[in-house]
Amino acid sequence: MKASVFATRNHKEIVRDPLTLLFGMGLPMLLMWLFSVMQKNMPFALYEISNLTPGVIVFSFSFLTLLSGMLLGKDKSSSFLMRIFASPLSASDYILGYVLPLLPIALLQIIFCILAAVFLGLSLNISVLLMVGVLIVISLLYIGFGLLLGTIFTDKQVGGIFAIFVNLSTWFSGTWFEPDMIGGTFQSITQFLPFVHAVNAARAVLSGAYSDVFVPLSIVLGYTVFIFMIAILLFQRKIRGQS
């Protein structure tokens, strides 16, 4: 109840400053179009629309990290959070308040990208629908990263760290090239980080290989739970004034 009041505020705060939001919608669609044009002249299938779509959508989620991280960071540096911490809201109310408004944004990103993909030749079927579900789960990972960044850093620092984050999450995602083409340490890091697993889970469900979804999605979920646990712990400490 109180969480939803706080979530409504956060939703307004995000959509009334829509520049990042528009960028987070527009850029993925542009990338999708560029790469599917390139695909026409390529000897391998990496950028085929069925491969590209899940990767680009997961990439677009890094904007969720930016949005949630910046909002939380700003609330911290303006002392707005101090006001909230002085109120009797619980840690789970805050967390929900910051997570809920980002889910409809994730859904919009998914829908816009799928529409663009259909336009570029993706055929609509039940797997596409199932992929939406899997992607919503994956979006929580990226929202969680944002909360963690926003809890630890100020809004200005989040801007800089986002640049690093977006690079990490892109290079190690397997969207733009196959990590095993490089191999070695790069391949190990890729396997260790959650990003490639997120893309693999979404690709598997879209291709109808449902049994291949389970393992990568579990890794993503594990990471998500872990990140949320740290964020909640840090939040609780701040509420109780132990930081």
Partner: peptide, 17 residues
Amino acid sequence: KKKLNISPQETAVAPNL
């Protein structure tokens, strides 16, 4: 916490509301 409220040193308002 239910008994008190605070106006912090920085003007802590929600900017877009």
